[in-house]
């Protein structure tokens, strides 16, 4: 009886000594990031060049921007596998608008609105019919990219206005790109939302116990709907940046990106089953993945081999802590 009581004992205040702090996921991840940084700096003489490092940020900021929204969704025990397809459909919408002569700011609005609309469609299906989000978003993943194919076929949209290139190619200050600044600002915004607002507490509550959350007066369905819209919106923003960066739209744009986004979130310590995770973790994970792929790129390692590395990372970051626990517990 006493054993059970001690199992269920909830402390008034969490232990904040140095040991649990050191063993926090974010701290370990940060250590990994530092090790990779040092390793890369030794492996290639080109790594420490500020312009090269700035180039490296381009490769992950779009994914990381979506990962912030995806983190909220996964904490709420949902998932959105359609984000890469949303990029495709939003990019196609912008391309079509650009052909029709819409100006730069119009394109940005169209890209973001298409993303938000696609996210709302996901959210509607999940919340209105009570469907599992993984199946819904596998369906919309085909649907959205399918729409991109229907519109474009094997064609391509080019001819974006010259100043549209700002979002994906320009620098705000020295080597600091607009994309990177935008990502950092969004990271702060999402961090505040998840960790410092009531809405954030709702997200955790829903992920831990949706039924309990409903009984405590949280509008579970509405919160989830908003999260899907935000995820779509962020994919729309990523579409603006990516389209602006590469300057053209094909239906295969961002193909397979959802895998890297989910990996980033899981690597950042967010529980794939929902209920726990942190934005700082996701941000550090974004840097880890960015540094790894950039480092491998400098060593002339092809993209498909990097995907092995990412796959191994995804499985091992989840497997290792579990193995560690199993080995320590007799």
């Amino acid at each position: 009886m006493t054993d059970r009581a001690s199992d269920n004992h909830i402390p008034d205040r969490l232990d904040v000594g140095w040991k649990p702090r050191m063993l926090r996921w974010e701290t370990l991840l940060f250590a990994v990031a530092v090790v990779i940084f040092v390793f890369n700096a030794n492996a290639s003489p080109y790594f420490l060049d500020p312009w090269n490092l700035s180039d490296a940020t381009f490769n992950f900021t779009e994914k990381a921007t979506i990962a912030l929204a995806m983190a909220l969704l996964i904490v709420a025990a949902e998932i959105d596998l359609s984000v890469a397809s949303i990029i495709a459909v939003a990019s196609v919408a912008m391309g079509a608008a650009a052909q029709a002569g819409v100006g730069t700011w119009g394109l940005v609005v169209i890209g973001m609105a298409t993303g938000a609309l696609a996210g709302a469609f996901n959210g509607f299906l999940v919340t209105r019919f009570g469907l599992p989000s993984i199946v819904v978003t596998i369906g919309t993943m085909s649907l959205f990219r399918g729409i991109a194919y229907v519109v474009l076929g094997d064609g391509v949209y080019k001819g974006y206005p010259a100043d549209f290139a700002f979002f994906g190619q320009e620098y705000v200050f020295w080597v600091i790109s607009f994309e990177f600044v935008f990502f950092l600002v969004m990271a702060v915004v999402f961090g505040i939302i998840l960790h410092r607002t009531v809405f954030g507490r709702w997200i955790f509550a829903i992920g831990n116990n949706p039924v309990g959350a409903r009984f405590s007066g949280i509008r579970v369905e509405r919160v989830k709907f908003i999260l899907f819209v935000v995820s779509g919106l962020m994919a729309g923003v990523a579409a603006v940046m990516l389209t602006s960066r590469i300057g053209s739209t094909r239906p295969t744009i961002a193909l397979g990106m959802e895998l890297e986004v989910v990996t980033m979130v899981v690597l950042g310590g967010v529980n794939i089953l929902g209920g726990s995770g942190s934005i700082p973790g996701v941000v550090i994970a974004a840097f880890v993945m960015g540094l790894v792929t950039f480092g491998l790129g400098l060593l002339n390692i092809p993209g498909i081999v990097m995907s092995i590395v990412i796959g191994v990372m995804l499985i091992s970051v989840i497997a290792l802590p579990i193995l560690w626990k199993k080995i320590r517990a007799p």
């Binding site: 299906l125 019919f129 199946v135 819904v136 369906g139 085909s142 649907l143 990219r145 399918g146 229907v150």
Partner: peptide
């Protein structure tokens, strides 16, 4: 090029019916 969009729509319709 319609195939992907059609199979996506069919998946969504099918899950909605299944769920009901």
């Amino acid at each position: 090029f319609w195939q992907l969009a059609i199979s996506g729509s069919v998946i969504i319709i099918a899950v909605v019916i299944n769920a009901r």
